[in-house]
Design a protein around this nucleic acid. Structure first.
Lengths: 196, 196
DNA sequence: CCCGTCTCCAACCGGACCGTTGGAAACGGG
DNA sequence: CCCGTTTCCAACGGTCCGGTTGGAGACGGG
């Protein structure tokens, strides 16, 4: 048994992400998180406080990862379709995030880390507005709406998988199906925003 | 005390819709549903069985209402934008439905009333495919994808209200804001599907 | 007026879960 | 070798919840 408190925290958090994403805050039990991590429950309380605090910690952590992940590959808005495609890819590769965000939205409580997230999104709106003024993007839609709807296109597949299954009848994990969905999202994004 | 079993069922179901939409299946308690309806808890079990059955009953009921509501105003696909607009309106007027569907999707269990719902959606896909063949709709997108993305445009606002608030900074219940959002949805739908 | 149905009330049981506690090992720095 | 920290283990108190039960009124059809 290594003597590594950071590793312990990491394993607990990893287990918490999985459990919260799967069952939501109400359905998750602290005991199961600990069990999944192979670490005693009492450590969980010692490090992260009660369940609510743990959920917020987990969510803001994952949002930081998202911000880091998309900030890397963001060379302006030369191709709005590829932006939507990358958002689609991120969600496909990290299905927990969309679920955590949905649980948060449904739970109706206060929004975790609201200030930073608001700033982050408003930055995107400003960037889109600038691109519209320059003619790089079509300006027929309000910039905030455009950002919102682009996210919708990319995230909707992971938000209502039952509906996706009923409409396409396909296995969402099959590579071809994923590629088809991505291509549709890219095309739709261009239709929404590409200059005419 | 009226002698009306149908009214009793109705009141229980009404309370169940509200509670389930607000707190989700896991967070809802049978006692609270009964209390909200002003009816004894034991009636609830007598009429609807256990919690899982009650949730499925409630959800399929609401989906039937939706089907009835949109089937009325569906005179072909002459204006795809108005179709999206009406879907937006329905969700705006019945915010519980989107939440119930999300809870269902997150809960990951079996899809309630799957057969009927699948048929219903496949009908829509066929109608869109026909419209594409006739040139009434642009055929650059797969018909199933198009239906799926049109629903996304309309429902996304009610699916992630926290995100909507951070992006627009507006009160979603204000009439002007609702009108602005609806107009954006209609415009976006036309961009996705209107023939060029 | 009577009988079957509907309803209420109150209480109960078994189980789950949150968060805590007491104690005892394992470990590493000095 | 010793002391403080980290970890484990087991158990507990209190609460809540799902689902059931027993008994007793209210109502309407015959």
């Amino acid at each position: 048994m290594a003597w590594d408190t950071q590793e312990t925290r990491r394993r607990l958090k990893e287990a918490a992400v999985a459990e919260f994403a799967e069952r939501g805050p109400a359905g998750t039990t602290m005991a199961r998180i600990a069990e999944r991590a192979g670490i005693n429950k009492e450590r969980l309380y010692n490090y992260f406080g009660d369940k609510q605090s743990l959920f917020e910690t987990v969510l803001t952590d994952e949002l930081d990862k998202l911000a880091a992940g998309v900030a890397l590959g963001n060379p302006g808005y030369q191709d709005i379709g590829e932006f939507a495609g990358r958002t689609f890819d991120y969600h496909a590769d990290h299905p927990e995030l969309a679920r955590l965000l949905q649980w948060e939205g449904l739970s109706g409580g206060p929004v975790a880390d609201e200030v930073n997230r608001t700033v982050h999104y408003q930055d995107k709106v400003r960037a889109v507005a600038a691109a519209q003024r320059e003619g790089v993007l079509d300006d027929g839609l309000d910039p905030a709406h455009l950002v919102f709807l682009l996210i919708a296109l990319a995230a909707w597949w992971f938000s209502v998988p039952q509906l996706a299954a009923m409409l396409t009848g396909a296995d969402p994990d099959a590579p071809e199906e994923r590629a088809r969905r991505r291509a549709g999202v890219v095309e739709a994004a261009r239709r929404l925003a590409a200059p005419r």
